[in-house]
Amino acid sequence: MEVIHPRNLEEALAAVADGMTPLAGGTDLMVEVNYGQKRPERVVALRRLADIADFSPTRIGAGVRWRRIEKEGPRALAQAARTVGSPQIRNAGTIGGNVATASPAGDGLPFLAAVDASIELTSGSGSRLLRWDEYFVGVKQTARRSDELVTAIVLADDLPERQEFAKVGVRNAMVISTVCCVVTRREDGATTVALGSVAPTPMRARRAEEMISSERSPSEATLAEFARLVSEEVAPITDHRSTEEYRRHAAGVLARRLLERCLRREAA
């Protein structure tokens, strides 16, 4: 096996174009290597590549680690960051790794869907921006070409004032989400609901969004209907982590709970 440490983005891109396997925080790839599921011959280690570790309100470099996002990221993304693995994992794992792996359970991904973030992909011939729903195409499948690296997450400069994240799992730490969810709500009621672990890619519950966005102070019945719509719209499967039925139920409960948190903050 060969491991190289590129000194700059140009060298990293040349390595990727040459077929080398990108390694960021290693929290996904290294586990597969240790299990013998993957045996990369040539690895390009991005851990100390400062070129992709920039951070601003509208742009988060792919190499930014969860540890930093947990402290400095937008509210719901910071909340999500706090639930990624454990301190040691958050000191290693990056948002770019989460996006590149594109696990249906990626904890950072519902936020990207909720705020219509774009993914910046860069190759030797330049960069392109793909909206999240163009980028994520299936279970661990993305529109990234093999000569491209995920270099940044690009956010709008007017993120919703209220945004909340929560996840359900079998324990509090070191757990892969059974369901994770972000709800955002603007002053005028415009609401987005994004979920993870309930479909091949992160998804939005559009019908629930549409219904609740026109409700300024939803009644108990409206909140129940909102939860029901979310449960209906998700497309979970039964696997080793949970059942379809439970995930549907939990998706509705989580989305309603987060909406109520947004509404309480609105009232406060």
Partner: peptide, 14 residues
């Protein structure tokens, strides 16, 4: 910073 040394290559610690 704390990290789990089973999921890092030694060469990454250069």
């Amino acid at each position: 910073k704390t990290v789990k040394s089973c999921t890092m290559f030694a060469v990454q610690a250069d």
